[in-house]
Design a protein around this nucleic acid. Structure first.
Lengths: 217, 217
DNA sequence: CAAGATGCTAAACGCGCGTTCAGTTGGGCA
DNA sequence: TGCCCAACTGAACGCGCGTTTAGCATCTTG
């Protein structure tokens, strides 16, 4: 079936789509149709001919990226966290444009971003439950909310870090990810194993507040 | 000196700057000069006359927003967390455009975003040290890295959440913030008081890895 | 009062964008 | 063979953008 990867599809349509993913990944969604067409070695008119409009092209890219990442996840052996999935994919240069596209998409918001996050949050929930069952992870009063919170936090921190320190070579997500993990590894580990507070008073105060909220101003 | 607020400055230059902050806050930095000029009740040419170019206008907005937020912070009585600063400011409709501008700026990256985060991370560091000294917060092996990590995480999560669920009325940050805190309050409190793992094995493994890293591939 | 700076505008310029259009090529099929 | 349809292109269109230019009032100042 799949001889090596989807890149083997050398129809003009696929070439345009791949070129679009690459340029969107590098330049954001401001990348022009003409630039994309040039990268694919076709005319700008052909892009519109195949995808109807620039928005149509973006939708096609969205579907493609989501499909590939889902397939990658299915093929992955054993459970891995959602962050680890993109991280491992970034390790292979072949997938770098897809990961870059996904990150751009999350930063821009929209349907694909929501789809990604729902997907990853659902994964996180599963892995957290497994951890709780295995006794390695503490139980939460609201597993769904926790999974979502941790997912949004992880990706949000990574995206903001990228925005603050844009890599000179956007293609080299590998190097960037390495540096990011180096910077955040220790505080993350401390937070996840020890928390931040020395006692339960803040949590108890919050729980009290939630169950018996003060009157609205 | 300051009769009520900076909004009292009714020179055309100030009106243009305030209009720019408002529109940038609502529409992002794609907002056009003509739109901003119209909002300020002047011609587009006058904007260029006063600020040289659109980039010049953005720089002026950056300086203004940073200055106002710093001043607000100085006036604030007692220590408050950096997140709480923006949160409290968002409560007052008067400051909402400034806060919106700051958030847009962080999402877009650039110098102002770095300035904000350095500022807030330094604040966080101070408050964390106070907490450690007071015995309410656990000490970290690297206070600087932890302060930065928590700051990037907090704002990153909030920004991603906004991108995923853009409020229908961007001006009403107040309502949005309320919903966000409702969604994340419990898992955040749990994480900060209890951590995530049941034992120290992950942290110990990480510390071992850092002090004695495996050979590079 | 003359002269020049200052605040400000209407109109236009040039550019890059997404998109459209008329037309060419070439393979599949009655 | 003749026809058609799909793939594809170069040129142009229309638009909105940031910016420029020329000119007009209105103050300031010697």
């Amino acid at each position: 079936m799949r001889s090596a990867s989807a890149a083997e599809d050398s129809t003009a349509r696929a070439r345009i789509r791949d070129a679009a993913v690459l340029r969107f990944s590098r330049e954001g969604f401001r990348a022009s149709l003409r630039t994309i067409a040039q990268e694919a070695g076709v005319s700008a008119a052909l892009v519109v001919h195949h995808f109807g409009s620039k928005d149509g092209l973006r939708e096609a890219c969205d579907e493609h990226v989501l499909a590939v990442i889902r397939e990658q996840k299915r093929d992955a052996v054993g459970p891995t966290g959602p962050t680890q999935l993109l991280a491992r994919m970034a390790e292979l240069d072949e997938w770098a444009p897809l990961v870059g596209y996904a990150l751009r998409s999350m930063q821009a918001g929209g349907d694909l971003a929501r789809a990604f996050l729902d997907h990853f949050a659902a994964d996180a929930e599963e892995y957290l439950r497994e951890g709780v069952a295995a006794g390695t992870i503490l139980a939460s009063r609201d597993e769904v909310a926790r999974a979502r919170y941790l997912t949004v936090m992880g990706y949000g921190a990574f995206l903001l870090d990228i925005a603050l320190h844009p890599p000179e070579d956007p293609a080299d997500l590998r190097a960037y990810l390495h540096g990011y993990l180096e910077r955040t590894g220790l505080p993350a580990m401390e937070l996840f194993t020890q928390g931040l507070f020395t006692d339960r008073s803040m949590l108890d105060a919050y729980l009290m507040y939630v169950t018996d909220p003060p009157a609205e101003g």
